[in-house]
């Protein structure tokens, strides 16, 4: 350890190791992972979210598997919670995942093609 910069490099690289532990006040991505969700293909979707969020280095976004919300016919369902705002996406596949990350999580704009209103009134 020859300088403080060396320490800071290790620190920055190790941030992802502990960041998740503690209070999470950022955006939460909830992926429906009950039996219905899993059989409809929620697992690769969730993995994609985790992978891409790490890839784009998006701080303060956590991905959580959740249970069934009762709309089994239009799974996989992904909900984005941001403060009081809740956006529900349906029939999310890997392709949709990429759009949601780019347009919604990064761009801040809801991807209207997949919102629940398209499927249910």
């Amino acid at each position: 350890m020859k300088s403080l910069d060396d320490l800071k490099k290790i620190r920055d690289a190790a941030q992802s190791k502990v960041q998740m532990r503690g209070k999470n006040e950022g955006i939460r991505v909830l992926v429906g992972m009950a039996t219905c969700g899993i059989s409809a293909g929620a697992r690769p979707v969730m993995n994609k979210f985790v992978e891409k969020i790490a890839e784009y280095n998006l701080d303060k976004i956590t991905v959580t598997p959740v249970g069934c919300i009762g709309e089994c016919a239009i799974e996989p369902i992904v909900e984005i919670l941001q403060g009081e705002n809740r956006t529900t996406y349906c029939r999310v596949d890997v392709e949709a995942t990429e759009r949601i990350i780019k347009e919604h999580l990064i761009g801040g704009k809801v991807v209207s093609d997949y919102v629940i209103g398209k499927y249910r009134l």
Binding site: V31, G32, M33, A34, I38, T64, P65, G67
Partner: peptide
């Protein structure tokens, strides 16, 4: 099975 796999 419940929490980590299915999120319950």
């Amino acid at each position: 099975e419940e929490h980590l796999y299915k999120g319950r």
